[in-house]
Simulated scan of single mutants.
Amino acid sequence: MKPVEQILSRSVRPRPSRSTERRIVSLRRSGDYRRCLKELAAAGIKPVKSSKALRLICCHAEKKRRWGALHKHPRIAYIEKDAKVSAHGLSASGAKRKSGRVRAACPAKAPWNVCRVQSPPLWPRSRGRGVRVAILDTGIAAHPDLTIAGGTNTIVPGGSYADDNGHGTHVAGIAAATGRGRILGNAPRAALYAVKALDRRGEGYISDIVQGIDWCIAHGIRVINMSFGMPGDSQALRAALRRARRKGIILVASAGNDGRASGGLDVPARYPETIAVAATTRRNRVASFSSRGKGIDIAAPGVNILSTYLNGTYARMSGTSMSAPHVAGGAVLLRGVSPGLKAGAAAARLRKYALRIPGGRSAVGSGLLQVAPAATGLGIRKRASRKSC
């Protein structure tokens, strides 16, 4: 059998065309990964993406060629099409100021949805200061109510991580709006990072998502929000999530917007490494569009949610995309109270203290997110008992 690097270099194409597609190749050994990259470079072929940690190489391939020899090669772990995910947000509408009293239990500038999940009662103890949260999305736009600590663009290496869609900026505000302008997010003092892996249409390749997760691991991100998904499966994405979880990152994902007929959750929410989030209405009922199925962990508001948007404006959007950052922001607050809190323990607390609401586990999981109760007993040091003489 020919060396895997030779077969791969003869199978790929140097540039995209109408007849090509992107494919992800996973090598079993690091040595084979390095030799493949060297062979491709010698042939004048630059991979679309590569991941040293996961031994992944993404290249262009002719759609009609099945790569039979590569699929059967013992040095190949798997090969998959570089599929696309889509943002889980529905259309945005302009935000009109609503008159009326602000309830005493809801602080000024805190929208109803932030108060509904009980984030403000925890703010005297933690507003998330210093806890790094990444919004893996369409980017984040400059906004009076957002402080962006940094970020990256995995679509165009070295490119801007500014938002050219609006979805990522809206999600970011729900998680971490500062209140300097009009609204407060769930974790107003979080260290907010923009990882632009979705384009202006709200779509992104799995390889771009994987690279974004790799970046988060390398830059000490503690919580990742993923308000996107796809109905299929991806071994590459699952491998990236497993690695992130082993590094202690809390992974939050939106369930999907396919309603009762969804037949299950989208990926990555379907994977057990994530906290899968469904959407609820202002009446604490599951939203009609929220996907149902096995694996939902928790629910949060996702209908007509006010948040930050492009050009310094505000907008209302719906979708499980809007629900997930409530949980991400809540996870930031918990780690602000207890920095050493394990990812699994954080997820367990969020589920345990959720408010039981109608719908059943396949629709709302453990119930409605309740952040402050989930912090019960966290960050409290027990005093050593004194022995009497």
Rank of each mutant, 00 (worst) to 15 (best):
residue 254 S to W: 04
residue 223 V to F: 00
residue 221 I to P: 13
residue 256 G to Q: 09
residue 253 A to P: 12
residue 252 V to E: 11
residue 269 A to Q: 10
residue 267 V to D: 01
residue 229 G to C: 10
residue 253 A to F: 14
residue 238 R to G: 00
residue 252 V to H: 05
residue 231 P to F: 00
residue 241 L to I: 10
residue 262 S to H: 07
residue 264 G to L: 03
residue 222 R to G: 12
residue 280 T to F: 00
residue 252 V to T: 12
residue 225 N to F: 01
residue 257 N to Q: 06
residue 265 L to H: 06
residue 276 A to Q: 14
residue 279 A to T: 14
residue 286 V to P: 07
residue 293 G to C: 12
residue 254 S to G: 14
residue 265 L to M: 06
residue 250 I to F: 13
residue 272 P to R: 13
residue 266 D to E: 13
residue 285 R to I: 05
residue 284 N to W: 10
residue 222 R to S: 13
residue 260 R to L: 01
residue 238 R to M: 01
residue 271 Y to Q: 08
residue 268 P to T: 08
residue 265 L to G: 06
residue 291 S to L: 02
residue 290 S to T: 15
residue 251 L to K: 08
residue 268 P to N: 08
residue 265 L to Q: 08
residue 235 Q to N: 15
residue 242 R to A: 03
residue 233 D to F: 04
residue 294 K to Q: 15
residue 264 G to W: 02
residue 264 G to H: 01
residue 292 R to L: 03
residue 256 G to D: 09
residue 228 F to C: 11
residue 234 S to K: 03
residue 223 V to H: 01
residue 234 S to V: 08
residue 261 A to T: 08
residue 288 S to H: 04
residue 289 F to C: 03
residue 232 G to C: 05
residue 225 N to K: 01
residue 238 R to Y: 02
residue 255 A to K: 11
residue 264 G to T: 05
residue 295 G to N: 06
residue 278 A to H: 11
residue 286 V to K: 10
residue 242 R to W: 00
residue 271 Y to C: 06
residue 272 P to L: 08
residue 277 V to H: 05
residue 254 S to E: 06
residue 240 A to W: 09
residue 225 N to L: 03
residue 270 R to P: 02
residue 293 G to E: 14
residue 274 T to S: 08
residue 295 G to D: 06
